[in-house]
Design a protein around this nucleic acid. Structure first.
Length: 600
RNA sequence: GCCUCCGUGGCUCAGUUGGCAGAGCAGCCGUUUCGUAAAUGGCAGGUCGUCGGUUCGAGUCCGACCGGAGGCUCCA
């Protein structure tokens, strides 16, 4: 017989997070109640709270549709209006197994529960296996909305059956729920796929193949500016740039371990004249070949080999997303060959500094550092060498602690050959995405039997630091589009200024103005179309061009232009020489917002 | 890859119960020569993602495939 458990809770006294979590979890119960009424054959999975609400997983006799969501939500609201109490009680394992005999997922959950630890929760006519964490009665469930239907594997493993997941949003007030929906709308506005098309930055053409980015002239300009910039920063820091091929022989990848650990993520293999080639999924093996091609002295190390190298990965079709998840990408990559742990620490500290500088200049703020660890139990995913993992993880942890930067740790997120520091960004849609990684690698040096000649003449094994800073050009530009909402800083703007002649007779002068700006390597267009000035301004605004230089009779007379800043600011008539100086200064300072920069 | 949904000119969308493919913007040709977010007239543009099926007849119904979106799994 079930024993009741006292579970009254004073919601107002709880921290908001705990209160919300109880409300969300309770709402999931009410969703399940509604679902078993809609489809009595429904098999129940789990229904936890999440950041924005809750979900519940079900195996159902048929696919859910939008009308079902409307019905379920209605039914939930009735249950909420009924103010049914949530009652927790304990039962024995045997009782529970009998009770959920027809519920395979509940039985699966029960297997992991210890006797004496089995509890259930009842509200209205519905009882679910549950460890608790509810509000007192359904009436305490506040503003919510069923959002979407999705597929999800039972217990998150693709080896298990796939269930239908219903997502709900839930907040304490209707205002907060409305704000959340507005936030989703805002995310859609900032979506790099939409802006990328509107501003003609990039394209994905069906016949070229999914995940294969076409950089249109405007996008290619942004990409080129970023690449020039990062290469210059690297040169200042002692990096040497190399260029290596996009393909390599099978033997190279067998030796690196990619063949056995990474092959399903590689493009199909090529074969000719009895030789097998692969499109490279990573640049490390090629860079190692460069290191290996000569004998190195400890005096040369650290050797920092860098390349804006192309990588080719057969991402699963369902995983491709605009420019942020693609199949062919260009990574701002480098491999730093170090003599030992001390040098590794110094080098990683240097990389972290560079990251802070680069992200600071780009105005990026929503990121955090994650120490991604291996999983000793997962011998399939990771190379099996426990001491190597322990050494690498301890080393990275020490560097992060010394850097003074905040970080958190995550198990099972490492690369197959070693632990890493991931830079995690929040996308416009609120999702966490890895931008770049820093990895310590003892594995590849061993695989390739790399050496350097130490001070005492002996041969020693170097340690490799793998690192990106700007990430792949694809993912970085996707992120920047969303960050700036397409309003790029002057230095990155594909077109930095458009000269707008008021009438046809001003076109010649407009060309002269443009010529002066171009002499300063500014990217300028003249809008000589047969349009009214208002129309040209509107078009320039929509194209998010930082500066509009309006020229009419008065300006032509004074060798000036009326300067309008993107967003509406009017700087008034300004001599062309001053405009050139101002834009140059703003560009070279990489100012984030046009019109604000003041020349020192 | 898996689950659900979606696919009509370059873009955004309309298209009744299956009955002759439409609009706005963009483009092109004119007219207008204009002072800070859309002047105006005309023209052109679509094998309705592809292939197959049902039907007298398919944009519309069915199937497969391709592509996209949201999830799951995986990852820069």
């Amino acid at each position: 017989m079930a024993d009741p458990i006292e579970s009254h809770v004073d919601l107002a006294a709880l921290p908001k997070e705990e209160r919300l979590s109880r409300m969300r979890h309770s709402a999931a119960h009410v969703l399940a109640e509604a679902m078993v009424e809609l489809m009595p054959e429904a098999e129940l999975g789990i229904g936890p709270p999440i950041d924005t609400g809750f979900y519940y997983d079900f195996r159902l006799p048929r696919p859910l549709n939008a009308d079902d969501l409307v019905w379920l939500e209605e039914r939930m609201r009735r249950s909420i209006a009924g103010k049914h109490a949530f009652r927790m009680s304990a039962l024995t394992k045997a009782e529970a197994e009998a009770k959920w005999a027809a519920q395979p997922f509940k039985l699966d959950l029960l297997k992991d529960l210890e006797e004496g630890n089995v509890t259930q929760c009842t509200h209205a006519a519905f009882t679910d296996l549950c460890r608790g964490g509810h509000v007192n009665d359904t009436g305490e469930i506040p503003a919510f909305k069923l959002m979407s239907i999705a597929g999800a594997y039972w217990r998150g493993s693709e080896k298990n059956p796939q269930l239908q997941r219903v997502y709900g949003a839930l907040f304490e007030s209707q205002d907060e729920l409305d704000a959340y929906e507005q936030q989703l709308e805002e995310a859609r506005r900032r979506d790099h796929r939409r802006i990328g098309r509107d501003l003609k930055l990039f394209d994905l053409i069906e016949n070229i193949g999914p995940g294969h980015v076409i950089w249109l002239p405007a996008g290619a300009t942004i990409r080129r500016e970023l690449m020039r910039w990062i290469e210059d920063l690297e040169i200042e820091r002692g990096y040497q740039h190399i260029v290596t091929p996009n393909v390599g022989k099978k033997e190279l990848y067998v030796r690196s371990g990619h063949w056995s650990h990474y092959q399903e993520a590689m493009y199909p293999i090529m074969e000719r004249e009895g030789e097998i080639y692969a499109l490279r999924p990573m640049n490390c093996p090629s860079h190692i070949m460069v290191y290996e091609s000569e004998l190195h002295s400890y005096r040369e190390l650290p050797i920092r080999l860098a390349e804006l190298g192309n990588m080719h990965r057969w991402e699963k079709s369902g995983q491709l997303t605009g420019m942020s998840r693609v199949r062919i990408m260009t990574l701002n990559d480098s491999h730093i060959f170090c003599t030992g742990p001390e040098q590794v620490e110094e080098e990683i500290a240097g990389v972290l500094h560079l990251m802070e500088e680069v992200y600071g200049t780009l105005g990026l703020r929503n990121y955090s550092y994650r120490l991604s660890l291996g999983d000793p139990d997962d011998k399939e995913k990771y190379v099996d060498n426990p001491p190597m993992w322990e050494m690498g993880e301890a080393l990275l942890r020490r560097v992060m602690q010394q850097s003074g930067l905040e970080f958190y740790e995550a198990k099972g997120e490492a690369a197959f050959y070693g632990p890493k520091i991931d830079v995690q960004f929040q996308t416009a849609a609120g999702k966490d995405e890895t931008l770049v990684t820093i990895q310590v690698d003892f594995h590849l040096p061993a695989q390739f039997e790399l050496e350097y000649v130490a001070e005492d003449g002996t041969r020693q094994r170097p340690i490799i630091v793998h690192r990106g800073v700007l990430s792949t050009m694809e993912r970085m530009v996707a992120l920047l589009i969303e960050e700036y909402e397409g309003n790029f800083p002057l230095w990155l703007s594909p077109v930095q200024a458009v000269v707008i002649p008021i009438a046809d007779r001003h076109v010649a002068y407009a060309e002269e103005v443009a010529k002066e700006l171009r002499a300063a390597k500014l990217r300028v267009e003249v809008d000589g179309r047969n349009e009214r000035m208002n129309g040209k301004i509107r078009d320039a605004q929509m194209r998010k061009i930082p500066y509009m230089l309006v020229v009419g009779d008065r300006e032509a007379e004074a060798r000036a232009a009326a300067v309008r800043v993107r967003g509406g600011g009017d700087l008034g008539a300004t001599p062309v020489v001053d405009i050139v100086a101002k834009l140059r200064g703003e560009r070279d300072a990489k100012a984030l917002v046009p019109g604000v920069f003041k020349d020192a």
